[in-house]
Design a protein around this nucleic acid. Structure first.
Lengths: 247, 247
DNA sequence: AAGGCTTTTCAGAGGCTCCTCAGAAGAACC
DNA sequence: GGTTCTTCTGAGGAGCCTCTGAAAAGCCTT
């Protein structure tokens, strides 16, 4: 029961849930993102344009904002300035198209905010949001934020350094392998279906089949379990679990 | 009588029964599912299309919805959005055809909702529903939801990790064996007929005979009772009971 | 004690899930 | 621009699960 991703409350210092405002003009996208955030215990509101985002921010007073860079009525930088004026120390995570990245974004990350390029995976958004709040000093309150280091048995992941070791030995992982493993390590001893994994680790626009999950599990096994007592277990007809042998 | 599946009340925090809305255009199916749910103490309503589902949801205000993915008048995602807009924090369990799975299910498991493919077994639907409500924080109020762990004598089942132990020793079970055992463990000290077991554990379209139940009971005995004092007992001409020897 | 019925067990076919390999397309990096 | 790394598709094959049918064992009645 410890280290449970679904522990229903993600609390701030004052005991109220952490609040996030999701702003995007595509309803499907806000639906998926806000759903995942709610599932993880955040208190979520959504908005579909810059004006209503600012209005909602004023009353809702979120700790963080997930904000589309290109909104119908406003440009990202403008909205950012508006938010900054209204909310002291709010964290902002931008969602941007891949080619719109270069320009201004550089300046944003300097200010402590961050961005994710579309199409993104939910794991990516969640990880970045956790990182932002952690850096903003909102950490140590909840289990969900405090894990800079994930540990399962002798397998250790340092999220910030993006380094994984097993028994002290460094393991090189590709981007997708890393995200898959992070998701598994955030849900130890819990069986995760391929659909669940696909929904969280792969981008929302991924058209392929759940077969990729099997493939990447096999990659991970080769790197992590090779020759050692396995941590990744198959539950036939259900999914996969990550767990140490001795509970 | 403790831990009784048919304990007549399944209550929410405010003392009223937990409510679920079942939506499917096949009357036989809603009949079977809603019957089983009522039997377990849920307060149930049914609907046969998207429009009436939303209408019913508005007044009935269910805690969970069992929803066919393919309705005559609407697509699953649309109805989901409607429900979400109307009911804060409602849990949705989708029923889908096997081949429709890969399609557009994407994202729903990330939002905390879940799905079951047709043809399904009632145990599967019930287990998933319990899981949804448990995660939504509706747990600990009622006996029916609180069991993440089922215990009968020295036999322990961890539903989430899908792990079964007897006397601390891990026992590997196949999918069907696991579901059969779960049903038995949810009804300890109660004689279950082969017909009952078949109706609950096997899919509704299963054409075979009750002989499979005998076979799977024998599999379970080999794994669970082998060499130990038996937990599974035959009641000749009636069915089977799971109970510890020393009461 | 025998016969008839229920239950248990065995053996095997078929189906299905999952794992792995090989290769093509794409992205990142120099 | 070329090289390397990464991601994904498809096919083949291994192994596990499920179910059928038949034979053996057990229980109850007569």
């Amino acid at each position: 029961m410890e280290n449970d991703v679904t522990s229903p409350f993600l609390l701030r210092a004052d005991g109220t849930p952490v609040r996030v405002l999701v702003v995007d003009d595509e309803p499907d996208l806000t639906e998926v993102v806000s759903g995942a955030l709610r599932y993880e215990g955040w208190e979520v509101r959504t908005a579909s344009d810059g004006a209503s985002a600012l209005a909602t921010a004023r009353t809702f007073r979120p700790d963080a904002v997930v904000l589309d860079w290109m909104l119908p009525d406003a440009d990202g930088l403008t909205v950012l300035r508006g938010l900054r004026a209204e909310l002291e120390g709010v964290c902002v995570l931008f969602l941007t198209a891949r080619d719109a990245v270069e320009d201004r974004i550089a300046g944003i990350t300097a200010g402590g905010d961050d961005y994710v390029t579309k199409p993104f995976s939910l794991e990516e958004v969640l990880a970045r949001l956790r990182g932002l709040l952690r850096r903003a000093g909102m950490a140590r309150r909840s289990d969900l934020l405090q894990a800079d280091r994930l540990v399962v048995g002798d397998l250790v992941m340092d999220e910030r350094a993006r380094e994984v070791t097993r028994g002290g030995v460094v393991i090189e992982l590709s981007r997708t392998e890393f995200e898959l493993l992070r998701f598994l390590m955030r849900n130890p001893r819990r069986v995760l279906s391929k659909a669940q994994i696909l929904d969280r680790v792969w981008s929302y626009d991924f058209g392929g089949k759940a077969h990729v999950v099997e493939l990447y599990i096999s990659y991970l096994r080769k790197k992590i379990d090779a020759g050692r007592t396995p941590l990744i277990h198959t539950v036939r007809g259900v999914g996969y679990v990550l767990k140490p042998d001795a509970p």
